[in-house]
Design a protein around this nucleic acid. Structure first.
Length: 117
DNA sequence: GCAATGACGCTCT
DNA sequence: CAGAGCGCCATTG
């Protein structure tokens, strides 16, 4: 429940940010937390997503850890998540990692046509 | 209000 | 890049 009463709950803020993640790209928990106005609360991001139902319109699959991997703690959804990301065109490394420099939210690829070089 | 939990991040080695 | 340890903040009981 909202302990801040600033309007929506922190979770709601997190969901809003996650939904803003472009398709075919991924964002780290810290990235989402920061964008949600909770710098340092990366844990809550994962915790919030953990409370997400299946029918949720929040693309939680686009949220990964700062290393571009699916949290090893995620025993149970590391499967579906990877599958969903692959469906969006996200490529995984041989070790199950994602190149944040390529698919990361805010990656150079996201820039509108090469800024210059 | 206090103590415990948690889909993590950063620093040092 | 990989491994181990501490800190961070919000939710839950």
């Amino acid at each position: 429940m909202p302990a801040r009463g600033a309007g929506k709950s922190s979770y709601q803020r997190i969901y809003e940010v996650v939904r803003r993640i472009p398709r075919g790209r991924v964002a780290s928990y810290g990235e989402v937390a920061r964008r949600a106005g909770l710098p340092g609360a990366a844990r809550q991001v994962g915790y919030a997503l953990h409370a997400l139902p299946e029918g949720s319109a929040v693309p939680w699959q686009r949220v990964v850890n700062a290393r571009g991997e699916i949290p090893p703690r995620a025993s149970g959804f590391e499967g579906p998540q990877r599958r969903l990301l692959e469906r969006e065109g996200v490529r995984f490394d041989a070790r199950g990692r994602i190149d944040l420099a390529r698919y990361g939210w805010g990656a150079p690829r996201a820039r509108a046509k090469r800024p210059r070089g």
